[in-house]
């Protein structure tokens, strides 16, 4: 039983946790900046990047795919900025223009080139392949101390762990500038904070998290995790510090419960097959948000306690 858990479930759960946390952390700030859809945008624009990487290298090596996807994400962020500035249109529209055209470009590229033979299908893009990221060499918990077994961990695990660690570190180090410039951009500029660089850094960090997670667990988790845990966390507290901790907790909870429900839930209900773990993780995060909307202590926010006569 234990050996089976370590072999089949431990790595997918850990990867799901790291991916969820890496996306939820920047999601807190993106939501407060009204940029939540950037996660959605990024997960669409990585398609042309992946196709180009495939065309250039002729293979589906993870590293090339990651670089292609990351390049596309950064390009998209720059394009969105450029469209916003030059076209003088609102950010949402700029995002829409860029990500639909890049996604369309990706589909065109995919059609024009002979990539149909490889595993570049929509199913993979959406759901990833979390269940297949198993640890063949593991014989049980003791394998965690066995260098030979550790060397055979799926690549996605150390990569996702590293990205998650970097995101956590960046969030901690740049906490104050992030918070100040998210709350009051004018004040932040007046005290000399590099507001544009902070905003760009945040979006690039989100893009890196999204791309890494996209590769391991598919875009559906990315989109869900940027929005659901932070939005649910906001309903639990009125302090940003606590909100971010809540969002991490919710992300972990969604990853674990989602994986377990996907694997065992259908059996409990008499079904024969497990359902997609990625889809279930996203669904659980949505469920958590729904519960927070119904029962969160900080739901009544706007205008609460305000005395209209005084305003």
């Amino acid at each position: 039983m234990h050996a089976e858990f370590v072999q089949l479930s431990l790595t997918p759960i850990l990867i799901g946790i790291f991916a969820s946390v890496a996306c939820a952390l920047p999601g807190n700030f993106l939501i407060l900046r009204r940029q939540a859809l950037i996660g959605d945008a990024i997960s669409h624009v990585v398609l042309p990047g992946i196709v180009v990487a495939f065309l250039l290298t002729g293979g589906v090596a993870s590293m090339a795919m990651m670089l292609g996807a990351a390049g596309a994400a950064v390009l998209a962020v720059l394009l969105i900025e450029a469209v916003k500035r030059l076209g003088r249109i609102e950010p949402g529209a700029a995002m829409g223009v860029v990500f639909t055209s890049m996604f369309a470009g990706g589909v065109l590229l995919l059609e024009q080139s002979d990539t149909s033979s490889v595993h570049l299908d929509v199913q993979h893009a959406l759901m990833g392949n979390l269940e297949s990221l198993i640890w063949f060499k593991a014989k049980g918990w003791h394998s965690l101390a066995d260098p030979a077994a550790l060397a055979a961990l799926p690549d996605e695990l150390p990569r996702m762990a590293l990205v998650c660690l970097v995101v956590v570190a960046l969030t901690v180090i740049f906490w104050r500038p992030l918070k100040i410039s998210t709350f009051d951009e004018g004040f932040a500029r007046a005290i000399g904070l590099p507001v544009a660089a902070i905003g760009f850094g945040l979006v690039v960090t989100a893009a890196v998290a999204a791309v890494a997670a996209f590769d391991a667990v598919g875009s559906i988790i990315v989109i869900a995790m940027f929005i659901c845990p932070p939005a649910a966390a906001r309903l639990m507290t009125n302090r940003l510090e606590a909100q971010v901790l809540w969002s991490v907790g919710f992300a972990v909870l969604a990853a674990v419960l989602g994986y377990v429900f996907a694997g065992y839930g259908p059996l409990w209900f008499g079904g024969a097959e497990a359902v997609s773990a990625a889809g279930m993780i996203a669904a659980v995060s949505g469920l958590i948000l729904g519960l927070a909307c119904l029962f969160g202590p900080c739901r009544a926010r706007v205008g609460q306690g305000r005395d209209p006569a005084e305003a």
């Binding site: 998210t182 709350f183 004018g186 009125n238 302090r239 606590a242 926010r301 706007v302």
Partner: peptide, 10 residues
């Protein structure tokens, strides 16, 4: 009016 007073902060 230039900031969002709903921001989670004390």
């Amino acid at each position: 009016a230039s900031v969002d007073w709903d921001f989670p902060t004390s």
